[in-house]
Write a protein that binds this DNA or RNA. Structure first.
Length: 573
DNA sequence: GCCGTTTTCGGCCCGACTGTTTTCAGTCG
């Protein structure tokens, strides 16, 4: 059983208990445990096999540890069946409607017998909700609006899409006279792979004028709320944007507070509370007295912590590290010296070899690898041996002609269902950079899939494994892999694992990066560009690496050409 | 339900906005 499945069981229990009005702290415990398990880089199943104690995990005590064990052993959980008893199957879904929380859902269920989103819509349209305590006409309208939001599937937005929006909003904000300073906080600043909304902090000389300016932005579809401190709008894309106003004396506190994550903030507040202080979005306070607030650094310092890079603020050990002066020196965007995975018109790329190389050279890269597809990827017109050989010669010729950049002849070779590579290994051995990928038979069971990938790693002709889990965010689940064995084998064979920077892949995902590096794996961040524009995805790959605690030394393509060639030379039969 | 370098019991993060009230509960982040 996968961690996500276990986590969703606890989330369901939390939802049901919450609607039933159970003790909120108990509810919170289930949610915390769900999060711990969902974010854990190793499977509970594997920890159990090693005899590890779940109770050592944060937020997991005797009761939930027993639940996890029961789920792993039987695939079921009595506790879940108990709480489900007599509870309408779809009632939880009502909580997805913005504005509806557990209390209102409970009331709607008890007073009107609602059990599903369909029931809710009908009741709202028929005006049956307005009579209930604390609910009026406006509530009904909001519910109908909220139902549209739910139906539109306006879930999370890819970081890349959000970045484009921020860029556009930034131009507006920069042009508003009433805006003195602005910054984006939230999961966007933490560089999460997807964001739920945008949190933009604004220091304004005139809030009213600034608000008027913001609301004139062409992308605004709806003003959700408008107050003195906060303005919330929904964009025509469905993305929600919160603008919050702050004075410069509390701007640091605000950026800290709204960057989160929630779990990180709770840790900080707990530290403050233990010292008899209070921390909120306006600052760190001792009674009424402001101890710090203007900058994040000052607040962390007063709490006895080093400043924590936003990407690490997930309560995954960064608070402890910050208190021991042990935070990693994260790899920077400007540390990248080359890109080792890209396509050209030879297969499914949109630009020619020379166009891609020239664009890479302009980016200041010292080296690139050209890695078009192998024949198994028929839709991409993948290359057979003959074409690849010719192609490699063309690339070598270009490499001789072009200055300031080394061009490695390479290939993205498919790992076939059997684990064999899609091209002759003698030919592959002649190439400078071979990255191997799973592009088919995504549903093999774990044992077979792991053997398949291990076979590629141990082939002696492969330098890297591309997009190791194969997941596509919100679309395709990761393949079933024993990642620990993959890490171990990759480390032993000096085979790199890729962090694919494609905005909907971002694979290897952040939670596994740290563990891979600890296992001795060298990672390589690549764009998998299929066009000139695709080369610009690199920063999103670096974001993943940073969220995965990686330092410069952990990433191959931060190294000099010489060092990379030395690493490449380690692969060979 | 979890947690503990004052605690095995009694806490558990904090504030803004909305819609309903007429002083506040619910929701959200």
């Amino acid at each position: 059983m996968e961690n996500t499945e276990i986590a969703s069981v606890f989330d369901e229990i939390a939802d049901i208990l919450e609607i039933q009005g159970e003790n909120e702290f108990r509810v919170r415990s289930y949610r915390r445990a769900a999060r711990t398990i969902r974010d854990h880089p190793r499977r509970m199943e594997d920890l159990a096999a090693e005899g590890q104690d779940f109770k050592k995990l944060p937020g997991i005590g005797k009761s939930i540890a027993d639940h996890v064990a029961e789920l792993l052993e039987t695939g079921k959980l009595k506790r879940l069946e108990e709480v489900r008893e007599g509870f309408p199957e779809h009632l939880r879904e009502l909580m997805k409607v913005p504005g509806l929380g557990p209390k209102k859902v409970k009331l709607l269920h008890e007073a009107l017998g609602l059990e599903s989103l369909e029931d809710l819509e009908k009741a709202a349209k028929e005006g049956r909700i307005r009579g209930l305590e604390g609910m009026g006409e406006k509530t009904e309208e909001n519910i109908l609006e909220g139902l549209k939001t739910v139906a539109s599937g306006a879930g999370r937005t890819f970081l890349k899409i959000a970045s484009d929006r921020v860029e556009s909003l930034g131009r507006l904000l920069d042009g508003l006279e009433a805006v003195k300073r602005w910054t984006v906080a939230g999961s966007f600043r933490r560089r999460k792979e997807t964001v739920g909304d945008l949190d933009i902090l604004v220091e304004a000389s005139d809030r009213e004028a600034a608000t008027e300016g913001l609301l004139a932005y062409e992308g605004v579809a709806e003003v959700v709320q408008r107050g003195v401190e906060k303005v919330t709008v929904r964009m025509n894309t469905g993305l929600q944007v919160d603008f919050r106003f702050f004075e410069s004396s509390s701007f640091g506190a605000a950026s800290m507070y709204f960057t989160g994550s929630k779990a990180h903030n709770i840790r900080l507040r707990t530290i403050a509370r233990d010292r008899g202080w209070k921390i909120n979005e306006y600052g760190l306070f001792k009674g009424e007295r402001l101890l710090a607030g203007r900058t994040e650094e000052a607040i962390y310092r007063r709490l006895g912590l080093d400043w924590v890079p936003p990407e690490l603020r997930e309560d995954r050990g960064e608070v402890e590290a910050a208190s021991e002066d042990a935070l990693p020196d994260l790899v920077g965007r400007d540390a990248i010296r080359g890109d080792l995975h890209m396509h050209t018109v030879e297969t499914d790329g949109r630009n020619t070899l020379s166009e891609m190389v020239e664009a890479a050279r302009k980016r200041g890269y010292d080296y690139v690898a050209i890695t078009d597809h192998s024949k198994a990827v028929a839709v991409a017109r993948g290359m057979d041996e003959k074409r690849l050989q010719k192609r490699a010669d063309v690339i070598r010729d270009l490499d001789r002609d072009v200055e300031d950049i080394r061009v490695f002849p390479g290939v993205e070779v498919d790992i076939l269902k059997s684990g064999r590579l899609d091209l002759d290994e003698d030919l592959l051995a002649e190439l400078d950079w071979v990255t191997a990928s799973v592009h088919s038979h995504f549903d093999l069971p774990e044992k077979a899939m792991t053997a398949r990938v291990l076979s590629a790693i141990e082939s002696g002709v492969v330098h890297a494994i591309s997009h190791p889990t194969g997941r596509e965010i919100g679309k395709r689940e990761p393949i079933a892999l024993d990642l620990d064995r993959v890490f171990e084998a990759a480390a032993a064979s000096h085979v790199c694992l890729e962090i694919n920077a494609y905005p909907n892949r971002l694979d290897l995902p952040d939670i596994y990066c740290k563990r891979a590096a600890e296992a001795g794996v060298t990672l390589v961040i690549c764009t998998d560009a299929h066009s000139l524009a695709g080369l610009s995805f690199m920063p999103y790959g670096v974001d993943v690496a940073r969220r995965g605690w990686l330092e410069r030394k952990d990433v191959l393509n931060t190294r000099t050409l010489k060092q990379v060639e030395k690493h490449i030379a380690k692969i060979g039969r």
